[in-house]
Amino acid sequence: MLKSEDLDRVFHALSDASRRAMVERLVRGPASVSTLAEPHAMTLSAVVQHLAVLESAGIVESQKVGRVRTFQLVPGALEPAGGWIGGQRLPAERRLDRLGAHLDADG
């Protein structure tokens, strides 16, 4: 079971649009820092800071070969967040279904 602070780190990491874009790029496969930086109007240093947030949250991992640092997604890292979101959605949907049935019965 994922601890609350781990889930907080994942959601914090995903709260930034640039980091989400980097995760979306990494879905296609590993990429170097410079490749991940290409579509963003920011310095390599800023990109590295964003990647450090993702790595600290356990979403990505990196390895350095020579002067090139390559990042990849950690398999299954986003599943706990998806599970938590799904768990919140189902009760709300059931309440809306009951409200819809109630409104249909009255109408």
Rank of each mutant, 00 (worst) to 15 (best):
D106E: 15
L26F: 13
H102L: 09
H50C: 14
G107E: 04
R89H: 05
R95F: 11
V10W: 00
G76F: 03
V23Y: 01
S34G: 02
V33S: 06
V74S: 01
L7T: 06
E79R: 14
D8W: 06
S34Q: 15
L73S: 12
L73T: 15
R25W: 02
L44F: 07
P75M: 07
L7H: 05
S15H: 09
G86V: 00
L54C: 07
V33K: 07
L99V: 10
R94W: 11
D104C: 00
T43P: 05
I59C: 06
E38H: 08
S4R: 13
P91D: 03
T70L: 06
R20Q: 05
A101W: 10
F11R: 07
V10K: 07
R28P: 04
L2P: 14
Q49N: 12
V48Y: 07
E93Q: 09
S4Q: 05
S18D: 15
E5R: 03
Q72T: 13
L78T: 00
R89T: 08
H50W: 01
V47K: 02
W84M: 14
V60R: 00
Q72H: 15
Q49H: 12
H102G: 10
G58E: 00
I85D: 03
R69V: 11
L73N: 13
Q63D: 15
A101E: 13
R25D: 13
H40R: 04
H102E: 09
L26R: 04
S15F: 10
L51V: 04
I85M: 13
K64F: 00
Q88D: 10
T35E: 14
R69L: 10
A81H: 01
R25T: 10
A101Q: 14
